[in-house]
Design a protein around this nucleic acid. Structure first.
Lengths: 140, 140
DNA sequence: CTCTGTGCAAAGCGTTTGCAAACGA
DNA sequence: TCGTTTGCAAACGCTTTGCACAGAG
């Protein structure tokens, strides 16, 4: 298991930088997402209950919403699976293993896609969401 | 409003070609998706109730599932919006207007993305789902 | 001290299921 | 005719809400 090397204050500052009050629940969510990268709501709840036994699902829902509103967390909708949540970072795309479901980030050059889409359509493209599917190294 | 120029038998044949019994409800779903391109469940229900007043939501859910199982219909998950459904066609990507929500198809060259992802990751990519967001011609 | 966040329980809402009747092949 | 589909209503599960108490700033 990956361990955190960040202090509680690290997450509190991150939260405050996004106009979010720093509570233990929110810090725990931030830490879990930073460590695990991508988690769905159920996984997040199971994970956090270990450290915060009284944590309620409602709190997770409320906090994910406020974190998304403040652009601190993003929801990643995956084809044929539950949404996962991640900390907002620089623009990136997602790889999903079709066998084990693992999600990884990948940085792709998107100019080509955007240019082609602008040329072929009447839209002015501002954003590209890409989900790549395939087999991860272990599942080949 | 776009009107259909296909006979009822056209949709019945399409359905049978996908191992689906041709019922009026299914033909109506196929027709609506062919005419409108992309519809969410609520829009589909409202539309179809006009022609089939006794149609139930449960029937739409059951049929969409069997149509997806038979690879006749595909679900398109959109960031921050309800899923829409479309008839399965050749591989293509989606454009979504961030103002009016309109969804259009676009054919993009994906080799570049796939090659780059294969080169930069340990995954063997088999599929790429791209959702482009921006402003459509009317909403610029 | 004040306002926001938390946890619990209840409510809400979209989706699924069970079943009898209707229907397609 | 036989197996599938339909429509209804009930059940389900995930998400949201209301509220009293606790906690952050």
């Amino acid at each position: 298991m990956v361990q955190s090397h960040k202090s509680a204050e690290h997450y509190a500052s991150l939260l405050r930088a996004h106009q979010l009050k720093a509570t233990p629940q929110r810090s725990a969510i931030a830490e879990a997402l930073e460590i695990h990268g991508h988690l769905n709501i159920e996984a997040l709840y199971e994970l956090l209950k270990q450290k915060l036994p009284t944590l309620s699902l409602a709190t997770i829902y409320k906090n994910l919403h406020s974190m998304i509103d403040k652009n601190f967390v993003a929801e990643v909708k995956l084809p044929g699976a539950k949404s996962v949540y991640e900390l907002v970072k620089e623009q990136h795309s997602h790889l999903v293993c079709e066998k084990c479901g693992k999600v990884e980030d990948i940085s792709l050059t998107l100019e080509y896609c955007i240019d082609e889409a602008n040329a072929k359509s009447n839209f002015t493209i501002t954003q590209v969401d890409i989900v790549l599917r395939g087999r991860c190294h272990q599942c080949q």
